[in-house]
Design a binder for these strands. Structure first.
Ligand SMILES: NC(=O)c1ccc[n+]([C@@H]2O[C@H](COP(=O)([O-])OP(=O)(O)OC[C@H]3O[C@@H](n4cnc5c(N)ncnc54)[C@H](O)[C@@H]3O)[C@@H](O)[C@H]2O)c1
Ligand SMILES: NC(=O)c1ccc[n+]([C@@H]2O[C@H](COP(=O)([O-])OP(=O)(O)OC[C@H]3O[C@@H](n4cnc5c(N)ncnc54)[C@H](O)[C@@H]3O)[C@@H](O)[C@H]2O)c1
Lengths: 231, 231
DNA sequence: AAGCATTTGTGATTTCTATCACGTTTTAAG
DNA sequence: CTTAAAACGTGATAGAAATCACAAATGCTT
């Protein structure tokens, strides 16, 4: 089977998430593509195509077995084959992610955290000890960890990423708002949260049809740093 | 001007973010579409089209003025016209977001936080007082707030969303992994973090071409809850 | 048992997005 | 001054993604 496109993976997760709530509420064990489509605002044809892409067969006049769908999705993503990961940067965001139990459902198991702040080293966050950054590479090597979660300041993220790669990491879930350069065989998934904020900002008070306003502002001379950097 | 498509907004933010780092490092005040394209892995033509879409004109043989580009983007998104927002749910994630200064760059100003946990009410998080959930509606009304950030457990998010809408909120930046139902004129931007995790999981140990394994697993009877819900 | 309504699965079509190709403009060098 | 190289702007083209349209299958009703 050829790899599934990201846009398909995204919809599969939406189905999966909804079916979790669905089965919790209703007492039904099948669902039709139109039902799913209606509630998720996805074309029913699309739902069927997506299900077809992961080998699911529906039943005419009935729909799909919820349980079978969920299991197929878990299988496709490998959620039932948990993978260990390390967290780098035990700051505000790192803490929040570490203490969130919801990720276990997607197979994630955070087995260690690393930080270079002496005040943080040695503390425990929901059962995970924060270790010094020096221990990172040996730990990853020793346990054959493939995945890292990166929540360090932008300034050091690339350096850390290089070290992660040299330690053998194959996938980085990156929360720092910067683009990391890594070898081709390493997957970077950027979780650039402020991007979502920007879309909201555009909706709330972005420009629409008042050209004059823009031109007026752009005409002003550009005194200084127009674009303060995110850290 | 017709509204910009989300995919364009996303690229604009990527340009904006890179230019922030770029100007911090280099001492140049212009950049070409190919330079930007190379570093961000975007086709140069695409860069020019995007810039054209927000009314930017480049200079042949020279490129675009970095400062002008940044200001145009700030203008399009309205980053220089800050908007107040309230945070609902001052838990782990809410705390992290509240204490993150980086959002100010995108015009966001979090002016209040609300929670229903008596232990949290009255505490301060980076200068913002956590208030009881009862105060939410009057506060939003009184100050004419349009935006809310939602970091409550899934179980209560819809209820809170309803209350936010009835208080006059026009945009919700939602971090709880559920789909909210709101009137058409209210914008929901979902930041479903675990979606990114799923993509990493797929890369690391998702199915590729071993059909037999899937079929074997799917053939098993479906004893019980195949899909535990995210909270 | 027959007929009808509903739902799946998929080829055809449309719509949206990204890339190509090329004319035009501008700078720099000979 | 002329010419060449580099960059922009944009119409044409290719490629992806979503939607449509309809045959085939199935369950329900009478
Ligand atoms: N907090 C948020 O809500 C939020 C939102 C969007 C993006 N981010 C991004 O996430 C990252 C972390 O944000 P945060 O709010 O948690 O910041 P933070 O300062 O609270 O945490 C950063 C942590 O990284 C550690 N660190 C710094 N240098 C290090 C090094 N060389 N090696 C190991 N650890 C090091 C620090 O000790 C600190 O604990 C930043 O890049 C930020 O831009 C955060
Ligand atoms: N922490 C993470 O890393 C993370 C990651 C992905 C998604 N999320 C989602 O973000 C949300 C919050 O996560 P969290 O880790 O901060 O959880 P949390 O339990 O730490 O915080 C939730 C907060 O909401 C408050 N709350 C509960 N019911 C409320 C109500 N009716 N009115 C007002 N406040 C109420 C609680 O008192 C608590 O402070 C959840 O939906 C979670 O699924 C969190």
């Amino acid at each position: 089977m050829e790899p599934l496109r990201p846009v398909v993976l995204e919809r599969l997760i939406r189905y999966y998430r909804y079916l979790g709530e669905f089965t919790a509420r209703k007492n039904v064990d099948t669902i039709t593509s139109s039902q799913l489509g209606t509630v998720l605002h996805i074309d029913p044809t699309q739902v069927r195509k997506d299900f077809g892409a992961i080998g699911l067969m529906g039943i005419s006049r009935v729909g799909y077995e919820v349980c079978e769908v969920c299991r197929a999705i878990r299988l496709v993503f490998g959620f039932d084959h948990p993978y260990p990961a390390v967290m780098v940067g035990a700051g505000n965001l790192g803490n929040a992610l570490l203490s969130y139990p919801g990720f276990a459902r997607y197979g994630l198991r955070i087995v260690a955290a690393f930080d270079n702040d002496p005040k943080k080293v040695g503390t425990f966050i929901t059962g995970v000890e924060v270790q010094g950054i020096r221990s990172m590479k040996p730990f990853i090597r020793k346990h054959g960890i493939q995945m890292a979660i990166l929540t360090t300041p932008v300034a050091v993220s690339q350096t850390i990423a290089d070290r992660l790669v040299s330690a053998g990491i194959k996938a980085i879930w990156n929360f720092s708002p910067t683009r990391l350069s890594v070898p081709e065989d390493v997957l970077i998934r950027n979780e650039h949260i402020s991007l979502g904020l920007a879309q909201v900002a555009y909706h709330l008070n972005g420009l629409r049809e008042d050209e004059p306003r823009r031109l007026a502002i752009l005409a002003q001379p550009c005194d200084e740093p127009c674009n303060p950097m995110e850290k």
